[in-house]
Design a protein around this nucleic acid. Sequence first.
DNA 1: ACTTTTGCACTGACTAGTCAGTACAAAATA
DNA 2: TATTTTGTACTGACTAGTCAGTGCAAAAGT
Lengths: 221, 221
Amino acid sequence: MNAGATRPVRIGGMESSTRRQATRQKLYEAAVTLIAEQGFSATTVDEIAERAGVAKGTVYYNFASKSVLFEELLRHGVGLLTASLRDAAQRAGEKGGSKVDALDAMIRAGLVFIDEYPAFTQLYVAELWRTNRAWQSTLAVVRQEAVAVVEGVLRGAVEGGELSDEIDIPLTAAALVGMVLVAALDWQAFQPERSLDDVHAALSFLLQGRVGGGQPLTGRA
Amino acid sequence: MNAGATRPVRIGGMESSTRRQATRQKLYEAAVTLIAEQGFSATTVDEIAERAGVAKGTVYYNFASKSVLFEELLRHGVGLLTASLRDAAQRAGEKGGSKVDALDAMIRAGLVFIDEYPAFTQLYVAELWRTNRAWQSTLAVVRQEAVAVVEGVLRGAVEGGELSDEIDIPLTAAALVGMVLVAALDWQAFQPERSLDDVHAALSFLLQGRVGGGQPLTGRA
DNA sequence: ACTTTTGCACTGACTAGTCAGTACAAAATA
DNA sequence: TATTTTGTACTGACTAGTCAGTGCAAAAGT
């Protein structure tokens, strides 16, 4: 509690040794797969430590508790996703494409993310709609960050006249996220032999209304 | 022990007492909300028994184990959903509507189901894509039953020339299910003030391609 | 009629085990 | 030297599953 910081230049105990950072990373990676497979409660701290190849005490040296480890893991993962979506939307914008192209680019970015971090995605989906859990508020916040990116692009498309202003932006954003999420998880779990392009193509079809009987205006193949 | 059935018509001890059936129903109801809120492992058998208003022993009198209770609960719930989807598709068919109308009717049936059994839906989503769990195979089976209903309607639509034969039926079915599932769960969790009609309308927009820029051919308001 | 037996449904105290978190001295690292 | 990690041992709260026994209503026996 002494304000006068002492030796290693450091604020609040954050951002320091690469070593510690590496340990935390190993713990994230161990925890994410185990929790995705078994769930939070069924995963023991001993298992996490063993899989990460560190001593149990190290877990508690780096994280205040099992729950805190999990919460920071959630923040970390959703941060990656949000950055990836924003990036995809921006790239598509720079290439001068339409907002619908940006949407399509975000769908692909979502698929790539899920392909790369399937365990994190599983775990996120499994926890998102629960109530009465300690990290509920954390989840609501990070969820909103990710969904906001999609909503932003939809809003831009409506304002630019590309999409009907009749669409309900929050609901449509949620539906789009769900479409990608569930299609991707099903792909991984039940038809892993399909390629990412296959899955992307199927979702583009849906987005562009060729399923519901509409005439496609965007995209070709 | 006497084979000649006597008073309460009963064979072999199966399908009998309303009392037992009622107890099992109470246990289902208690378990579904608790597990939806907390997850399987974090929910104790004592909690389930208490919420159901029975003694712990009764749980084990009626179910071989906690896992078995959960598995039977899953079967029970997905059975209800599947029946509801089939029913909706059939009604729409009888009214002479198109297959796309049947799809729309199924979306609504899905929403109604989730509205009625939100806890079951949460729990189902949370467990579906996990690996290494005892009831994994049970889940795969019941999932397939439900998805098959959607795939059937899509197949019919393609055969009838209503939908392009370029669509990938399994992937599209998964995406549609995901769209409904996630939109509905988000609705319940984050904007519960919206009406079912609002949500349905937003999803119909998506299905009919008015989001992706296509021309709507089906549906009106 | 009456007593006794049967079997189902349920009870709740109890057991054997599990697991998050702690303690701490010694070692490794930077 | 200061920080970080290790290894081992420990505690105490919590939990899945067990089991001897209760209550009761309908049969069977007399």
